[in-house]
């Protein structure tokens, strides 16, 4: 019954299987046939860039990288879960909850979690609340620059269904239509304890080998890109930001 309902919900959106069941963002339901990503050689068109800039950027889409099997992957997953480096990029008002988490009251360092100033070195992206269309552009860009395996944590109700901005003209309602999300934390705002609980949940997911967001993004690249391009009108960056 639950499965049926899930299938019916996603029949409209084309969302990858296993995505959390929440209200779909109406903006992702439009026609995506006019959004062209690839040329005949299956290389990215990078149509948002000028001819000159196109030479400077990569035109290869992301690839699925199969995990190892058995104990070795389990061991790596354990290390990944015990060394979570947060991308220090306050994407919304919820970023304020990260400060008490870093300092003496909640001290996330004791759980192997620490902030990192560059997307290249980070492994977890905390989307701190509402994501406006303008921020979404930066979120996509930063997410794609992170090296896999990478994880996303949606903080606050705004990332789930828009929250109090559900009918706003420039706020994204549902985050996992644009980038894969591993854990959502409901609340407006969730306290640092809730954020810690979410991070512990993420650790369990990674240890069980279910933290495959990067591969999910690569598998459903066209779907995610179509959704992103539908809301980001001034697309002046490469189609995939290495």
């Amino acid at each position: 019954m639950e499965k049926d309902m899930e299938r019916r919900l996603y029949a409209d959106t084309g969302a990858p299987e296993g995505s959390p069941v929440v209200n779909p963002d109406p903006r992702t339901l439009g026609d995506s046939s006019n959004i062209q990503l690839f040329n005949e050689q299956l290389k990215l068109l990078n149509s948002g860039l000028t001819e000159e800039d196109r030479l400077n950027f990569c035109d290869t889409p992301p690839e699925v990288i199969k995990p190892f099997r058995g104990h070795w992957e389990n061991f790596l997953n354990w290390a990944r879960s015990e060394s979570l480096w947060i991308l220090g990029f306050g994407t919304g008002c919820g970023a304020i909850e990260l400060r008490p988490l870093m300092t003496s009251r909640f001290d996330m360092y004791q759980y192997g979690i620490q902030p990192r100033p560059t997307p290249r070195q980070s492994s977890i992206f905390v989307i701190g609340g509402y994501a406006s269309v303008k921020t979404m552009k930066r979120i996509v860009r930063s997410y794609e620059q992170m090296q896999g395996p990478k994880f996303v944590l949606g903080l606050g109700s705004c990332t789930i269904n828009g929250g109090m901005y559900y009918d706003s003209y420039n706020t994204v309602n549902r985050l996992d239509h644009y980038i894969p999300v591993d854990v959502y934390i409901a609340g407006c705002m969730p306290r640092p304890e809730a954020l810690l609980a979410g991070l512990m949940e993420l650790k369990t997911i990674i240890k069980e080998g279910r933290g495959e967001g990067a591969n999910k993004y690569a598998e459903n690249f066209e779907w995610y890109k179509a959704n992103q391009k539908r809301i980001i009108k001034d697309w002046n960056m490469p189609d995939y930001n290495w």
Binding site: A79, R80, E82, D107, Q114, Q147, P149, W242
Partner: peptide, 26 residues
Amino acid sequence: VQGRVGQPVWQPYIDIIKNYGKRTAV
């Protein structure tokens, strides 16, 4: 000194394993 518990003593090992175990690199 900062009034925190602090990371485990063996955290540098885990960080290094994690970084070597990343699947992609540019």
